[in-house]
Each structure stands twice: as structure tokens, then as C-alpha cells.
Amino acid sequence: MEQIIQVAVLGIGLGGVFALMGAGLSLVFGVMRIVNLAHPSLIIGGAYLAYWGFRIYGIDPLIMLPVCALVLAATGVLFYKVFFERDAKSATYSEMTVLLTFAIAMIVEGALGAAFSNTQRVTSPSYATDAFFIGNVFIPKGQLYAGITSIVIIGLLAAFLKFSRLGYAIRATTQNREAAALLGVNVNMVGLMSFAIGIGLAGAAGALTSFVFSFFPAKHWEWVAVLMSLVVMGGMGSILGTVVAAFSLSIVAAFVGTWIGSTWSTMTFFLALFLVLLFRPQGLFGEKPELV
């Protein structure tokens, strides 16, 4: 029993980080219909920022988090302006943009690799290797802090989307772009803002990642498929769906990792993806299948 609680706790901690990673991705997809394959590479970018902040100035990654978020949000705005602010009416828009993000992922990876080499890095604030014990249940502080921070950020995001004027505009644009434009929403501005927020979330996730996982520039490929699975499973564009998928699958993955072997834990995400494609192609919270 204790072991079950133990594994579940670890799963929840990771689930929070994955949920935060996936939330930004889902937001961007919802508003822009862009599957941002570069999202994980930008997370790594955020992680490097936190890493150097810690190495050079000794700044705690949790304190660096807002900085990472802001820097990445600015990067997001830049990318939006350079790559995506063009006519979105092309028939092959979704294919073209997904390939474009694939190219951007390679650009970011190549740039990070050239700048920082392919060495594995990890930020090591004191809590990264520390742990609490509740009874015999062992709770690593790093994962705990990362999980809690993620949940807080996701909560803030949800409140922002639910109550703020921009949040209304973002939700409206996600659900019916044309209708939102008709009611006076500047959908281009909403696209830009969602990109900034989505990539900003990647930066925040990067800061957390920097002390939870070891990372290197090419690491993002390992996450692309995992995060994308979460987004497809949640129902493309449903942030709630993505978060639910992140938590539930991370817990399952933690059990798979413990009982079957740690190499197979990521397999959980991929198998779940294929099961969803087989039995519910529109995803858990999606409404109609993506067959357009």
C-alpha cells in the first residue's frame, strides 16, 4: 500500500510539470490551430536560462521562473511575427505550420547545441536532491516544489481564461474564430497574445524542468511525442483535457516504470495515444474528430 502511494505521489509531481508543458501547447493550438512541435525545444531553452542563472548568479530556479517566462514570451512574440503572422487561410495551413514548427525546433536545438554543447545539464539547488518523509512515503522536494508551482500556474491560467477580458477573447477565438472576429475581437492580437502566453508557459516549465530532469539540446525530441500525445488525448485545444491527460498518464507511467521497468514508462503515453486514436479519435474532451 505504501508503495502504491509512493509511486502515485511521484507520478503526480511529474504530472504537474507535464501538465504545465502541455497547457501552453494546447493554448496555442486552440487559438492558432498550430501544432507547435517547437514547444519542447523552447522548454529546453527556458531550462538553459534557469541553469545559467543558477550557475553564474546563484539565482534559485524558482525565482528565475518569471524571468524565464518573460524571456520566452518575448521569443514567442518574435517567432509569431517572423513565422506565423501571415494569411491563415491557406488550405494546407495546418500542415505547413506544423512543418514550420518542426523546422523551428531544429533551429532552436541547433542553436542551443552550438551555444551550450550537448553535455547533460541539471540545475542543482539544495532542494533538488532533498526529500520529505511522510511515514515511509518519500517525497523528493524538487518534484514536490515543481508539481506545486505547476499547479499554481495552471490555476492562475485557468482563472485568467475564465475571468479576464483577454481570457474571454482567447476562449471565444478558440471556439469560433469567425464569430469572435464578428463581435469585435482582434483575432490577430489574440493569436499573438496566446502565442506569447503559450511560449511563456514553456519558459516557466523550463525553469522547473531544469532541476527535475537533466537536459541537453536534443532532449526535446523525447518530450515532443509525450506532450503531443497529451494534447491529442485531451482533445486538440482543450486545456482541461490536456491537464487531465497529463496527470492520469503520468501516474500510470509511474506505475509502469516501477513495476515493469523505467525504460517502458514513456511507452505508456504512446500506447495511450494509439488507443485514443483507435477508439476516440477526437480525444477525451474533444467534440468532433479532426477530419477536416
Binding site: 474571454y168 471565444a172 471556439q175 469560433n176 469567425e178 469572435a180 464578428l182 463581435l183
Partner: peptide
């Protein structure tokens, strides 16, 4: 041109977005 996953009240609020 409704927003299916927003409530009736939220839809009306969108009507007054500007």
C-alpha cells in the same frame, strides 16, 4: 456563431465585448 463551450451568460458578455 455561438461559442459552444461558453455559458449563455458568457456568450452574452462576448456580445458586448467592444
Amino acid at each position: 456563431a455561438l461559442f459552444p463551450k461558453m455559458t449563455v451568460r458568457e456568450n452574452l458578455r462576448m456580445g458586448g465585448y467592444i
